[in-house]
Design a protein around this nucleic acid. Structure first.
Lengths: 352, 352
DNA sequence: CTGAAAGCGCTTACAG
DNA sequence: CTGAAAGCGCTTACAG
């Protein structure tokens, strides 16, 4: 005699004396429902505190969400990007069956035009969301503006730009990771020590390097340690250029006891140290557990690598867009990664 | 004319010339399928690299998986366990709509009987899987044996026991984290330094402490650094006992330049150092970013905390059982957490 | 403006 | 040992 209570839309439909099709129209705010019916159904939905079953929803709707990823291509020298790509791949595998499609576009870190071209390709392909490494400031701004116009949400990965309408930034807290590097370098300092900050990149003007170096310097300011901090900007990323720039520095500054390389190219500096005769042995801090860095961590030339779980950055970028697009979830505009310290002793267990 | 390819079980059924019911039987290894049919279907499943649609699966099956968690209760003094519990909670929220139920049972770390009682309560409640902190060796063994008999899978969290049939161990690589502590402590060492290992626990005989300390000592052996390493075992976890044990040690050994506390109770040691007059300032390394430790990290009395993402340990424990029970996934018997180094400078970004 | 029906990819009785 | 059918909670044409 007891009527078993129906679930979800069916129960709503029963109470409202309509069919589930009408209920569905109300739930999705679709046109074609009389005001009266709409009100009645809305009320019931509230009464029941109805929560849609997302499983059923995804299953029934054939809709596919298309995401695009625009990041640097992986080369031996920019191996870093292999990790985010793996994370993106993992996210893709996990949720592709829930109606997600991810297309990856790659640009050449030493070629702005390649960024522009790929960005345009994405804009033409009608996507629902974008993961973007905004390496080239102006070009990324232009691209972001285009996305704003089209109403396409985008998240920044690994580095960010100020004053943008990005849905989120997923990457390191730059200033603080530089700050930590400052602290770590103090373990090598003596009375008369000098420090050296090394920037190696074709796009050193990037906001990233400035922030990082400022953090590094702030540590010494905050702690009233007025060691001289030298700086060298190397605009070519080949071994020769690095050697050519570092050699004179080391010759005229024998008291450099700690080196901070502001990106993953610390292995280039390690190679330089290795070849010097006599080999100096300053404390060397770099970024990212790429293969070449791991090698020098192992043989002791690199002391610390600061890492930001790059695989997880990729994974989270995709997941963030997915949560936003499918579940309309509220998203934190800043999703800072932890600042991990990787040494020879713990690197085997690091989740890169 | 082109036949649209069917999805999933339907496509398999079509190719095998059977109905989806039979396909379902094979997928779930249910009895009542001829060897021939089973083989044919299995082959097709492999060919198609079939991945079941979990959405559909969960939607169609009303089944609920019941998991039980048996971990220490959270007190000010065992605050560590708050983090795994949060992770468990997060996993629960994420997948409860996919048919998961998690019940938590807590025991008192200073009361073996409470462990036994809760363990029995779990055994009586008919669960499908168990997350277990095997703090009390003998009692945990007995419980594990009972689970083996009943065929209930269980995973160890945070610490482990040798030679058990646990589905997995999710926790730190103890030896290596001690080893890293050895390395870190060298930053404070001078010519005549002494080191001190401090164990504070009611159950010091635990395998955990031995492993950790061995790792610590191994670092010095491996690197031919024959510093004297003192050791103190404090069997009471109250402040007074800690003070009473440490005081004479520091009075007779003024050259203790580095201290290694083998669990989360490093804040007790920091409190001791704080109150000494004159206050010594050795390098202090402990475990876990619990509130009291964070406080001493901040004011500089603790230098390094080694952490193992306790929140994630909880999350993974649940997810591991879920993957195993729902997807029949193969599970790694060892799931080592990374060995994280937390300092004052990076703690704000640590995912505890 | 509203409804009847098919279907998403599975699972679950039940029938034979 | 195998199949036919109903149903999980939704969405999507299509009909009226």
């Amino acid at each position: 005699m007891k009527k078993k209570e129906l679930q979800g839309v069916k129960e709503i439909a029963r109470r409202a004396n309509v069919t589930i099709a009408t209920v569905d129209r109300v739930i999705h705010n679709r046109a074609g429902v009389s005001v009266k019916t709409r009100e009645k159904i809305t009320k019931i939905i509230e009464e029941l505190n109805y929560q849609p079953n997302m499983l059923a929803r995804r299953l029934a709707s054939g809709k596919i969400i298309k995401l695009a990823v625009l990041i640097p291509s992986v080369t031996e020298e920019t191996e870093f990007w292999d990790a985010p790509l793996r994370g993106i791949q993992r996210a893709k595998t996990e949720i592709s069956q829930y109606g997600l499609q991810v297309d990856s576009f790659f640009f050449d870190l030493s070629n702005k035009q390649s960024f522009i071209d790929q960005a345009n390709a994405i804009l033409e392909s009608a996507v629902d969301g974008i993961v973007l490494a905004p390496t080239f400031i102006q070009e990324a701004r232009t691209f972001a503006a285009a996305c704003n116009t089209k109403g396409i949400p985008y998240v920044f990965i690994d580095s960010t730009l100020p004053d943008q309408q990005n849905l989120s930034y997923i990457g390191p807290p730059l200033f603080q990771s530089g700050y930590l590097a400052g602290k770590l370098s103090t373990y090598a300092l003596r009375e008369k020590s000098q420090l050296l900050v090394v920037n190696i990149a074709t796009a050193i003007e990037s906001y990233t390097y400035k922030e990082t170096e400022e953090g590094f310097r702030a540590y010494f300011t905050d702690h009233l340690k007025p060691y001289p901090i030298l700086r060298v900007d190397i605009h070519q990323t080949d071994e020769k250029s690095v050697f050519r720039n570092l050699q004179p520095l080391f010759e005229s500054n024998p008291a450099i006891d700690a080196l901070f390389v502001t990106n993953s190219r610390s292995f280039l500096v390690a190679r330089f140290l290795e070849k010097m005769n006599p080999a100096p042995k300053p404390l060397l801090i770099g970024y990212d557990l790429v293969k070449e860095n791991a090698k020098y961590l192992d043989n002791g030339l690199i002391d610390f690598l600061i890492c930001h779980q790059p695989e997880d950055q990729g994974y989270r970028s995709i997941m963030t867009l997915y949560q936003f697009l499918i579940f309309s979830k509220a998203i934190d505009k800043e999703q800072y990664m932890p600042i991990d310290i990787v040494t020879r002793e713990n690197q085997a267990f690091y989740r890169n």
